Amino acid sequence: MVIAKQIPKVLSQGKTIYSKKHIDHHFAHKLPDPQVAEWYTVEEIREKYNMSVSAVYSFTSEYGIPRKKSRGKTYYSKSHTDQHLKMRRPDPEIKEWYSMNDIVALYNFAPGYVSNLIYKNPIPKIRRGNKGYYSKEHFDQLVREKQLVPEYYTVEEAMAKYNLTRDTLYHHIRYNNVPKIKDGRYIKISKPELDAIFEQPIII
């Protein structure tokens, strides 16, 4: 860390001493905000907002949600999390809902593509049993406004982006059940689901 951050240092009586000012500055943002009184665990965020573990880590990293560590467990600011995710809470006025299977069948989207859309856009959702459901009105509106179409890589594009051989790429596709389609004589691979394999969030 001290090398990567170019922390100033001096040699004193045979010992290396690092700049206190620079070390404190680097770690200051990692200290818990003393004004935050309530905290969520990852499981509590997952339960309340119907998110996967990877989605929670991506969200907290992307929005810089204040966090703290206690006894080996990470906690996230309740107020900051709720502020950014409140749009995900279901509106009691919403009467029609899609399941993931409904969306996949209707729009011919890969499940990973749908999950990515729901994560990046404020689509209200609810949970019934162990299944998630998404507002039909809001999802249909999103598709209309953005004129969405499924995103795919060609084999060559995927190999180039992730520096893979053809055999290694196909191994990942088979092992992770990445959706693919045949377009003429070309094979195309679901972009969001392949990206999800190689762009996992860093868990701290």
Rank of each mutant, 00 (worst) to 15 (best):
Met1Gly: 15
Leu194Tyr: 10
Gly64Gln: 15
Lys146Gln: 14
Ile189Phe: 02
Gln200His: 14
Lys188Thr: 04
Lys73Asn: 12
Glu93Ala: 07
Ala37Glu: 11
Pro66His: 11
Leu31Cys: 10
Leu31Ser: 14
Asn116Lys: 14
Pro122Gln: 05
Ile7Met: 08
Arg128Asp: 10
Arg67Lys: 12
Lys191Ile: 03
Ile65Gly: 02
Val149Cys: 05
Met100Cys: 01
Lys146Gly: 07
Gly14Phe: 04
Ser12Met: 01
Ile23Asp: 06
Phe59Leu: 02
Val143Lys: 02
Thr60Pro: 07
Asn50Phe: 10
Glu199Asp: 14
Ile202Phe: 13
Gly112Ile: 01
Lys9Gln: 12
Ile187His: 09
Tyr119Thr: 10
Ile103His: 01
Tyr107Lys: 06
Asp102Trp: 02
Ile3Asp: 09
Arg88Val: 03
Gly129Met: 09
Glu47Trp: 04
Leu106Trp: 12
Ser115Pro: 03
Arg46Tyr: 02
Asp102Glu: 11
Ala105Pro: 01
Gln13His: 11
Lys73Val: 15
Ser190Pro: 02
Thr168Phe: 08
Ser190Tyr: 02
Asn116Ser: 14
Gln141Thr: 07
Arg46Asn: 01
His22Gln: 13
Arg88Ser: 10
Gly184Ile: 01
Glu38Gly: 05
Pro192Ser: 04
Lys182Arg: 11
Val10Tyr: 01
Asp24His: 11
Lys161Pro: 13
Met100Arg: 04
His171Ala: 04
Ile189His: 00
Met1Pro: 06
Lys120Trp: 00
Asp33Gly: 07
Asn121Met: 00
Lys48Ala: 05
Lys180Phe: 10
Ala196Tyr: 09
Ile126Thr: 12
Ser79Gly: 03
Glu43Gly: 11
Pro66Ile: 00
Lys69Phe: 10
Ala37Tyr: 07
Pro8Cys: 10
Ser70Asn: 14
Tyr98Gln: 15
Glu44Leu: 08
His84Asn: 07
Lys136Gln: 12
Tyr49Met: 00
Tyr175Gln: 11
Val53Trp: 12
Tyr113His: 13
Tyr75Ser: 05
Lys21Tyr: 09
Ala196Cys: 05
Asp167Pro: 03
Ile126Met: 09
Ile173Arg: 03
Gln83Lys: 13
Leu85Ser: 00
Tyr119Trp: 14
Tyr49Cys: 00
Lys20Thr: 07
Lys21Thr: 10
Val149Ala: 15
Gly14Ser: 07
Ile197Lys: 04
Ala105Gln: 14
Ala55Lys: 02
Ile65Pro: 01
Lys73Phe: 10
Asp24Tyr: 13
Gly129Pro: 09
